[in-house]
Design a protein around this nucleic acid. Sequence first.
DNA 1: TAGCTAATTAGCTAAATGGTAAAGTATGCA
DNA 2: TGCATACTTTACCATTTAGCTAATTAGCTA
Lengths: 113, 113
Amino acid sequence: MLPTDTDSLSLTFAALADPTRRAMLARLAQGPATVKELAQPFTLSMPTISKHLKVLERAGLIQRGREAQWRPAQLQAAPLRDVSAWLEDYRQHWEANFDRLQDYLRKIQKGDS
Amino acid sequence: MLPTDTDSLSLTFAALADPTRRAMLARLAQGPATVKELAQPFTLSMPTISKHLKVLERAGLIQRGREAQWRPAQLQAAPLRDVSAWLEDYRQHWEANFDRLQDYLRKIQKGDS
DNA sequence: TAGCTAATTAGCTAAATGGTAAAGTATGCA
DNA sequence: TGCATACTTTACCATTTAGCTAATTAGCTA
């Protein structure tokens, strides 16, 4: 989609579509961390880490501060709340084997026995 | 991340990071639909629609069948259940203004008053 | 068989993404 | 002032993605 792929949900989903970034969020769920701390589990260069953080920031998933030479990042969960709200419309489809129930309902409606 | 960006959650999030595909899923939540039906709300070419459907299929979000010359698609919600499960670890962070509470706790822990 | 509809495949382009190394900025400290 | 640490910016490369048109496959119907 060319126009406004910048919609908030798309930005959030795109940010979450990378295991490195999800691991960073998991770390930040424990509390704020510096860039170096966030980089530590990975074998990635610092610029790459910086880029990932920028993606998370653009999606509103983290907020960044300044403390001396450190740039601590902090989790901001609001976009995750939006994802959760989006998901709710589909909950019935995965609960209680809803897919198979739907199959059955469709079958009998077509008189397919 | 170079290795196995093909992990299931990443595939699902990437598939959801596009408003066209999310609209297709919303349509499919009402019941199965042919490719043409799914294309109808958009001004996109059929090949483009086909590609979007392939992304959804690869993520396991739809299943496709064959009925004469039609290829009906059907929602498969299991990957959304996985997303929901992943989200749960963060629920406390967005409920009850948890972010601000965390700020406060951090402050008093540092004796920052 | 021919022709129609439905959909995919092939081949292309432009832009975004994820990675790198090298250079630059900001802050604290000797 | 000068140096070390923490991090970002710049410039580059390879891959993926989203879009297109044109051509092809699949199945129904006359």
